[in-house]
Design a protein around this nucleic acid. Structure first.
Lengths: 227, 227
DNA sequence: ACCTGAACACCGTTCAAGT
DNA sequence: ACCTGAACACCGTTCAAGT
């Protein structure tokens, strides 16, 4: 609301200097509330009662702030026990990741986009690729890892996006009504036309189905590699 | 550049009224050149030598213009022969879709996000779900269709995004250098650190590997359904 | 070093007024 | 109906100046 902080100056008011960490904290809060695309640098500065240039001074441009937020969120993902069988390892990781990422809308998309360049994601990549290599994927382990993580992030990103633009789901109805002679479509209408609660459980179902499908596909690949 | 069209008025200059179709044509051109997120409503209007409000008059807000562009691009995707075996049908569709979507950066993301609500995507959904239902997926056909299309769109969207922000790939180098004691990472570094040409072929590889993995996973599911 | 305050060059969108 | 021209309420980012 207020375009400038209340006090004349932080120093004049006896306030300590703002730290990069505090800015990221505030950015994570805003992200939890409104999603990564739901706040502006000006709003972030406003929340800290500081001028926008302060954000640039400590962290650089908006993109860097978002990277820092993504870092923080990815750091919340617990890497499963390295001794688990590979299927269990990924089932556990991706199961645990979904609620965490969903609570910070837009982070999953970011993670999918530049996951391989983010320090805290490297921790997961490293463990996951090792688990896969040990399971017999060999040089294909990074590919296999990408398949699973991409699938999960993509699905979460779609859910995030639907939250942010609530009108997106509804329009389908008209289309279905207009073209009742499409059996393939009819089979899909159960999911598309359902109420929000139904949508949620359909998201769950698609998430689990997709992960399961990727795991099965990789399993088949593993069998081929062993043969 | 010029913030207003050259002539005083289209009517005064003897020009015919602009149509929604012409606006969409121009938007598709801009998208081909700069990607969906690479042009503004003002630039679109400028390209047509018209004031921005004209776009709103004919099509509504920017989102609607982008939907129309997505429609157009998806309409370019040829649905494969319905008599093909399901694996071949999807291999052909997704193979043909990649260059088309890549030539219109940002459309794949849009398609993944609201594919199920877009008329021209319904044509594909309908055919694809039918092909899967006939192959034995039954009620799971829509789920299986989503798995394949989501996987493809996600990977294309990542490539699109990397084109639009060229700095994203480089930073990794430092991270690898700083942490040479991570064997999982080392296996991945070949892909991440490579030159652009290598990146392109790695994208190809990941795309084919992921689709193959999903097809294999669905095949396993199909076997389970038959048993 | 850290912050202020203002400015620059943009956005998407709306709206009264013209033809 | 179609378009003009201007305005509103924002953006991200930069920069000289202050302390």
């Amino acid at each position: 609301m207020a375009s400038h902080p209340g006090a004349r100056s932080r120093a004049a008011a006896g306030l300590p200097a703002i730290t990069a960490g505090q800015i990221i904290d505030a950015a994570v809060s805003l992200t939890r509330e409104h999603g990564v695309d739901g706040w502006s640098v000006r709003q972030l500065a406003g929340a800290l009662e500081v001028w926008p240039a302060v954000v640039y001074h400590h962290l650089g441009e908006r993109d860097a702030v978002v990277d820092a937020v993504t870092e923080r969120v990815v750091a919340l993902l617990p890497p499963p026990d390295a001794d688990l069988p590979w299927r269990d390892w990924f089932t556990e990781l991706l199961g645990a990741a979904r609620p965490v990422l969903r609570a910070h809308r837009g982070v999953a998309r970011r993670l999918a986009l530049r996951g391989a360049t983010m320090p805290s994601a490297l921790r997961l990549i490293d463990s996951g690729v090792l688990v896969l290599a040990r399971a017999g994927f060999g040089a294909e382990a990074p590919l296999a890892y990408s398949v699973l993580l991409n699938a999960a992030c993509q699905l979460i990103a779609i859910e995030d996006d639907r939250d942010s633009r609530p009108q997106a789901g509804r329009r389908v109805a008209g289309v279905f009504d207009a073209q009742p002679d499409r059996p393939g479509l009819a089979a899909m209408s159960g999911a598309a036309l359902a109420d929000p609660d139904q949508l949620r459980t359909d998201d769950d179902l698609l998430y689990r189905y997709t992960i399961g499908c990727c795991l099965d596909g990789l399993d088949a690949r593993l069998a081929a590699l062993r043969a």
